[in-house]
Write a protein that binds this DNA or RNA. Structure first.
Lengths: 148, 148
DNA sequence: ATATGTGCAAATGATTTGCTCGTGG
DNA sequence: CCACGAGCAAATCATTTGCACATAT
C-alpha cells in the first residue's frame, strides 16, 4: 500500500500535480478495501471509517482517471451501468466470472488466454493497453440450490 | 431476419406476451443495422427510416431485455456508460478490439480461447450464459499516424 | 503567489418508472 | 373484454461540470 502511495506521489511530480491528503486517503482506503469496488463502495468505506472527514464523492470521481494513469487501479468490468475497478499493484492479472444469481465475482487466470490474446494483437498490429474478459453465468452454489 | 422475427413470435407465445408491431419494427430495423448498436443508434435509425412512425425510445429500452432472453441480441460491451449490443442470430460468435483513438471496433475470434474458457467453467462448475471479451488499445492505422 | 484541488450544487446523459390510454388475443 | 404494451413526462442513478473558496508547492 505504501508502495502505491509512493507511486502516486511520483506520478504527481511527473505531471505537475499536487499530492493532496484527499488523494492519499483515497489510495489508502482503496488498498485497504482489497476487492473489486465502485465509486460508491469506496465512498461509503471512507465515510464509515473516517467519520470526522468529509471527502466528497466528486473527488473520488476526479481522482480515478489519475489512479488509472498512474497504474494503481484498472477498470475491471461494468456491472449494469456501474463501473467496477480493482487494484493493479500487488494483484496478479486475472479475469472474472460473475454469478448472475448471487452476484459473486470469481477471479480466474489462464496464461494461455493471455498468450493467444497477445498473438492476435501482434498479428493485427494492435497495441493493447487494457482488456476486459468477463464470463456471466451461474456459480456452483447457485446451480446446486436451483437443482434442489 | 425473418428468422429473428419468427423466433421472437415464438418467445412471445411461450411467455404470454404480445407480438406488437412496435416490437417487430424494432427487430427488423435491428437486423437491418448490422453492426454494433446502442439504444440511441437504433432509435435514430428507426426515426430516420420511418419518418411517419413515432416509436418511443422507452419501447426500445423495454424491448431489449426480451430480445436478449429470446436470444436475438447480446450485450457486446459498454462504451463509457453506454451499453452496446449486437445480433446473436446469424452472427458468428466473436470478441472485440476497440481502438481508443478512432473508436473503431474490430472483431476477432479464436476457437482456442473459447475452448479454454469452457474448460475453466467446467472445472469450477460454472454455467456460462454469456461473456464479454474486449481488448482496448490502438489500431494499426492510429499507431501509424502517431509514429509520423 | 498562484495554479491546482476541493466541495457544493446544479447539469447531464442514460435508463427506469408511474400513469393513462390504446390494442392484441 | 381486459391484461399487457405504448407513450409521455417525471424520477432516478451514475457521472460531470461550473463556480467560489482553500491550499500545496
Amino acid at each position: 500500500m505504501e508502495k502505491a502511495v509512493q507511486k502516486f506521489r511520483q506520478y504527481c511530480q511527473d505531471n505537475g500535480m499536487r499530492n493532496t491528503p484527499e488523494r492519499e486517503l483515497i489510495i489508502r482506503e482503496l488498498y485497504r478495501l482489497d476487492e473489486h469496488f465502485d465509486v460508491d463502495r469506496l465512498f461509503l468505506r471512507i465515510r464509515n471509517t473516517h467519520l470526522k472527514l468529509k471527502l466528497s464523492k466528486v473527488s473520488i470521481y476526479r481522482a480515478i482517471p489519475h489512479l488509472i494513469k498512474a497504474g494503481l487501479i484498472r477498470e475491471a468490468f461494468s456491472d449494469s451501468g456501474t463501473i467496477c475497478y480493482e487494484h493493479v499493484l500487488g494483484h496478479e492479472h486475472h479475469d472474472h466470472m460473475k454469478c448472475l444469481a448471487c452476484g459473486e465475482v470469481i477471479e480466474f487466470y489462464e496464461k494461455k488466454i493471455d498468450e493467444i490474446q497477445q498473438k492476435i494483437c501482434d498479428r493485427l498490429d494492435f497495441e493493447m493497453v487494457w482488456h476486459v474478459h468477463v464470463l456471466g453465468g451461474y456459480c456452483k452454489k447457485c446451480r446446486e440450490i436451483n437443482r434442489k
